[in-house]
Simulated scan of single mutants.
Amino acid sequence: MLDRNHRANHRERSLLSKTGFMRALSPSALARLLDSAHITALPARATIFREGEPAMAFYALLSGYVRLYRVSRDGRQADIRICGPGDIFAECLIYGGDIYRFNAQAAENVSLARFDMQDVRELAEQDPTVSKAIMATLSDHLLSTMDCVVNDRLHTAPQRVADYLLTRCPSDNGPASIRLPYQKSLLAGMLGLAPEALSRAFSSLRRTGVTVRGRVIQIGDVEALKEI
């Protein structure tokens, strides 16, 4: 379902070079990867790949947001991760299997770079900075997953929402205003909540002065929110 495919132009190469994964590469490895990148623009809700399909490529996100999720036998969906600009995804399969273990869908209009798995495997054998960059990325994702598991098991829904808001507050006290980068349905999935559970959590936070108007969240008292 990928379309509008082209080689990375100067602006796109510059954006890719600034990602954490690319910054760790040697100049020669970076040049080879940038030369091999295929840039694709996709509309919202477009499928990037499906669980069970051959894992032929991994991706770097240039703009927009991508939703990674699994589907149960009875059709229920569970979000694994929400990827934003600068993130890479499916790189865990470079050494971890020959099929995708989850689905990837554009949450909104996106631009992303596609990298061939086999090409990167071969490059990693020639240049240790590539394998080190892969390991560093996998380590970051593992630590993030561990934090997510702890958050799910130890925190209530209002606490998860409060923690999310606090990490994005522009100030440590007083009133604050933030704008969600994506729809509340995506935020719910990222926090491991059903949409209705997220709504109830926001309702319970009203006593701390939290109000919701579309994607804009007003926080009446940051200090009060920290006490949740």
Rank of each mutant, 00 (worst) to 15 (best):
I48Y: 09
A29V: 02
L30D: 02
Q218S: 15
I178Y: 01
Q77E: 14
A224L: 08
D163H: 10
Q159D: 05
S111I: 08
R215N: 11
S63G: 11
S139D: 05
S171Q: 13
S144G: 14
P158T: 10
D74P: 00
L2G: 05
A176V: 09
Y69K: 04
N151S: 15
P43Q: 09
A29I: 03
A46C: 04
M190T: 12
A224T: 06
H6K: 08
R121L: 10
D163S: 09
F58I: 09
S63L: 04
T145C: 00
M117T: 12
V110Q: 02
D74G: 07
L68F: 03
R213W: 00
R32F: 01
L42G: 00
C148W: 12
R213N: 13
Q105T: 11
Q118D: 13
I48Q: 08
R168W: 09
V66P: 11
S72C: 02
R207Q: 09
S36F: 00
L186F: 13
A224P: 00
M190P: 01
S171G: 10
I228G: 02
V161N: 06
Y100T: 01
L33S: 05
L186I: 04
A104F: 04
Q77N: 03
A78Q: 15
R23T: 13
M190Y: 12
A46V: 05
A136K: 12
A31E: 14
N151P: 00
M117C: 08
R7D: 08
F89C: 01
L33A: 04
E125H: 15
G97F: 07
L16I: 07
P128H: 13
R32M: 03
S171H: 10
M22Q: 03
S171W: 03
D147V: 08
R160S: 04
C148V: 08
P54G: 12
D79H: 05
M22Y: 11
R215C: 00
A162M: 05
E227M: 09
L180C: 01
L123D: 02
P54Q: 13
A8Q: 02
S63E: 14
Y59T: 07
T167W: 04
D163A: 13
G96V: 01
A41E: 11
L166K: 06
R215M: 01
D172C: 11
